[in-house]
């Protein structure tokens, strides 16, 4: 439907609609304004002034230096970028294979296998905390990079498989038959023919699952403890005392996910609908 159709004709209601939106917008960006005013102040000035006052002298660099020297924020970011990227990549590769098998290969009891994998997202994630925590302690994966990577890969699989399976179901069998006549086996069909076709779905899955792992707090605080291993949200959650530096850290760690979502938003208007798990 064109936007015009629902547009109101009267000038008065047009003004009303836009003013209501402007008022709401103010509330929505208020926390950002609050953070931007805060990061300019020194710890002392922050405690002495009102939040709506501008900083007498800008302490942005000092606050940044505090983050670099006295916190593990940057290390945490590197950890999470790594966990998120590797986790999403492994999840997508395994999910491609599983989705392909479920949509196109001769598998008995398809629905059973599908639900078995998909069940990972149906249950509340709290259910997995104790068993994985205890198992990780026993096999030496607790507080390790490999453990975090492995867990994030696993938790991304159900959703990735779901999206990719939907895509593969929509691909016509004729394309595959043609390739098969040319002598391609299943493996080649998956990676040479279906993979290039699925690129848009794959990038949506990669980006959303990366963002999920990057933004995760619960698994991070449960499965890690040392600062070199902790993912970013677990690291920043214990940031205390120096509020201006903490606010600056909030802004810095949000840069990857904000960039990523604005990219998603611009390129995949429909894809964004899948972002919740």
């Amino acid at each position: 439907m064109s936007d015009k159709m629902l547009t109101v004709s009267s000038r008065r209601s047009r003004v009303l609609i836009n003013s209501v939106l402007v008022v709401f917008s103010f509330f929505w960006i208020f926390p950002v304004i609050f953070a931007l005013l805060g990061i300019m102040k020194s710890k002392k000035v922050y405690n002495l002034t009102n939040f709506w006052e501008f900083a007498p002298d800008i302490q942005l660099l000092e606050n940044y230096r505090f983050i670099v020297e006295y916190s593990n924020i940057l290390q945490g970011m590197i950890n999470s970028l790594f966990y998120g990227a590797v986790g999403a990549l492994i999840a997508v590769i395994f999910s491609m294979m599983a989705a392909y098998a479920l949509a196109k290969l001769r598998i008995g009891h398809r629905m059973f296998w599908f639900m078995l994998i998909y069940s990972g997202t149906i249950f509340p994630f709290q259910l997995y905390l104790i068993p994985v925590f205890k198992a990780y302690q026993r096999v030496g994966l607790y507080d390790t990079r490999v453990g975090m990577m492995l867990f994030y890969s696993a938790i991304c699989i159900p959703f990735a498989m779901f999206v990719l399976r939907n895509f593969f179901i929509g691909v016509s069998d004729e394309i595959m038959e043609a390739a098969r006549i040319d002598g391609a086996d299943n493996w080649k069909i998956l990676w040479r023919i279906l993979f290039p076709m699925a690129k848009p779905s794959i990038s949506v899955v990669l980006l959303t699952q990366f963002a999920f792992s990057y933004n995760d707090l619960m698994f991070g605080i449960t499965f890690t403890t040392s600062s070199g291993i902790k993912p970013i949200m677990a690291t920043i959650s214990t940031f205390q005392d120096h509020i201006p530096a903490m606010l600056l850290a909030c802004i810095i760690v949000s840069i990857p996910s904000v960039l990523l979502y604005s990219f998603l938003n611009r390129n995949f208007d429909e894809g964004i609908a899948y972002t919740s798990k």
Partner: peptide, 20 residues
């Protein structure tokens, strides 16, 4: 054909189904 399912099933069963 079932091998294609294997990695995903192993991870999901190993981490989640047994956890439940």
């Amino acid at each position: 054909d079932y091998l294609y399912l294997l990695p995903a099933v192993v991870l999901v069963v190993g981490f989640f189904v047994t956890s439940i």
